[in-house]
């Protein structure tokens, strides 16, 4: 499958309400431009992100998934981001083991004051995904 003309990567980002969603808001209020590749889903906490959400996004058309939460120690719910880190570490390794580029899943810590960081993360990830191209493995229609 060749990459279609004009293809742009699509990132589904799960942002925790207290830090990262606010960080993305700050990028907006500070007018820090970043690629239009990202689509944000607001969750209360990065610990709310079920690894199956990640695979579902990759299956349905996302080229990368970002999970963003409060820095360790700053979680609004104390520990949610630490559970998320474990689950997603394992998720990422399992994805790689099953043949999906691990770079497609990223977990990062963005605080409410890090608008610039949020923009930078999106830029970096977009660049990585542009190199990788679309998820080819999970896009075939019909029975295998």
């Amino acid at each position: 499958m060749s990459v279609r003309e004009g293809w742009r990567p699509k990132i589904v980002a799960f942002c925790c309400n207290w830090c990262s969603y606010a960080g993305a808001d700050l990028a907006g209020t500070s007018r820090i431009p970043y690629p239009a590749s990202v689509r944000i889903i607001r969750v209360p906490c990065s610990g709310r992100v079920n690894p199956v959400f990640v695979v579902r996004a990759l299956q349905r058309g996302a080229d990368g998934v970002l999970v963003a939460g409060c820095h360790p120690g700053d979680c609004h719910y104390s520990t949610g981001n630490l559970y998320a880190r474990r689950r997603l570490l394992v998720t990422r390794r399992l994805l790689a083991y099953m043949g999906i580029e691990p770079e497609r899943l990223r977990l990062c810590w963005v605080s409410a004051s890090e608008g610039e960081r949020f923009a930078k993360v999106i830029e970096e990830m977009t660049a990585v995904l542009e190199k990788l191209g679309p998820v080819q493995q999970l896009r075939e229609e019909g029975p295998p």
Binding site: I41, V43, N50, F53, R56, G61
Partner: peptide, 13 residues
């Protein structure tokens, strides 16, 4: 869960 999955689906259409 069903809401988040629907959101994922909506964004990936």
């Amino acid at each position: 869960d069903q809401q988040v999955l629907a959101e994922v689906d909506a964004l990936c259409l």
